[in-house]
């Protein structure tokens, strides 16, 4: 049986890659994808601990995270479409006004 630690380290690596993407990229959709990657890394941690402590709560939490990620993707991408229609760009530095 694979030790829980290994899954945690994999999760940490994926999370750091996501952090890196969010901090260094300027394309809004790529940043969004990096955030999804970080969320998935956290999901992996939840499942690793769920198996370790033999509890269902971790699984249920992952279930809810998935539902919320779906909602987040729908709204977030709608915001990017709206931004693109108004500013012809999805560079996050350009989205610096609270209204348009």
């Amino acid at each position: 049986m694979i030790p829980t630690q290994w899954f945690l380290i994999l999760s940490a690596i994926l999370f750091s890659i996501g952090v890196c993407g969010v901090l260094t990229r300027r394309n809004g959709i790529t940043i969004f994808m990096s955030i999804e990657l970080m969320v998935n890394a956290v999901n992996l941690t939840f499942l690793a601990y769920a198996r370790q402590f033999n509890q269902l709560h971790g699984l249920i939490f992952v279930f809810f995270i998935m539902a919320i990620a779906a909602a987040e993707a729908a709204v977030g991408l709608a915001i990017f479409i709206s931004l693109f229609h108004h500013r012809e760009t999805i560079d996050v530095d350009e989205a610096n006004l609270m209204h348009w």
Partner: peptide
Amino acid sequence: YTSAAAFLITIVYYILKYAAFTAP
């Protein structure tokens, strides 16, 4: 890049140090 790397190094250090579980 540096902050992501620093984050990774820190968290892996703490996982190795404190999260050494026995197999379930």
